[in-house]
């Protein structure tokens, strides 16, 4: 990269700010989560739990993971869908007619790589094929891992509730077919799909001055794929 470094904090301001807000909101989830959990415990005639017990419980684990999985699903689908599908006029989209993985020349791979291209973009073969899909593959892998984690923590939390209600625990496979698991999954997926679709189409007609997520304020509505 040719831009000059301006120090660790300014170079990474976006990632570090979101990382810090992530930690603060995770603490907020733990504090409000234990209060909500204890309100239910008391209503059920059970002992309240401490904050430490709550954050080491599968109830907390599944609540965190069910949201993580839907975010990674969203990015995974968006990264792959935008290769093949366009939204005319959107800053989030490629231009109509450019659908598909594009040529090696356009993508600067193999012999079309620049001097400062990543090594795996130049080398060819399976490494270039994998590297050329690495962002989507990582998001897809993180979706599968977080979804699996939400199912495992959800299973334990569900069985905790079952025992509290003097009902039989279910097997892991039984939980994968339970309404609780699918309700948690679908209620997160639906909101992600709506948000992504909204962003793609709202960005056609609306602007945010200075944001790379938006077209330049004066860009015509019909222009696709221009950011500024």
């Amino acid at each position: 990269m040719s831009e000059k470094s301006r120090g660790f904090l300014r170079d990474n301001a976006l990632s570090l700010t979101f990382g810090a807000v992530f930690l603060a909101t995770l603490v907020g989830q733990a504090l409000s989560g234990v209060a909500d959990f204890n309100a239910q415990q008391i209503a059920d005639g059970l002992e309240p739990v401490s904050l430490g017990e709550y954050v080491t419980s599968s109830s907390f684990g599944v609540d965190v993971m069910e949201n993580w999985q839907s975010e990674y699903l969203q990015f995974f689908l968006y990264i792959f869908a935008t290769v093949w599908l366009v939204q005319r006029g959107s800053s989030e989209s490629k231009k109509p007619g450019e659908e598909g993985p594009e040529s090696d020349k356009e993508q600067k791979v193999g012999r079309h790589a620049d001097e400062d291209s990543p090594a795996w973009a130049r080398i060819g073969g399976w490494r270039t094929a994998v590297y050329g899909r690495s962002l989507g593959l990582l998001m897809g892998a993180l979706f599968l891992l977080t979804w699996a984690a939400s199912s495992i923590a959800g299973w334990a939390a569900y069985n905790g509730d079952q025992l509290g209600n003097r009902e039989d625990p279910v097997s892991y496979l039984g939980y994968l077919g339970a309404a609780d698991f699918w309700n948690r999954s679908f209620q997160n997926w639906q909101s992600e799909m709506l948000a992504v679709g909204s962003m793609a189409v709202f960005a056609v007609y609306l602007r945010q001055r200075g944001s790379p997520e938006s077209k330049p304020v004066g860009a015509p509505h019909a222009v696709t794929g221009q950011t500024g």
Binding site: F8, G19, S57, M65, W68, T146, A149, I152, A153, N159
Partner: peptide, 30 residues
């Protein structure tokens, strides 16, 4: 770019640790 790479790995490690932690809580049946 070295300090950017550190943030890349920090994110990846935090995510993997979070996933492993949630799986461990579930498997422990807590």
């Amino acid at each position: 770019m070295r300090n950017v790479r550190a943030v890349f790995w920090l994110y990846l490690v935090v995510i993997i640790v979070g996933i492993a932690y949630a799986i461990a809580l579930g498997l422990a049946g807590r």
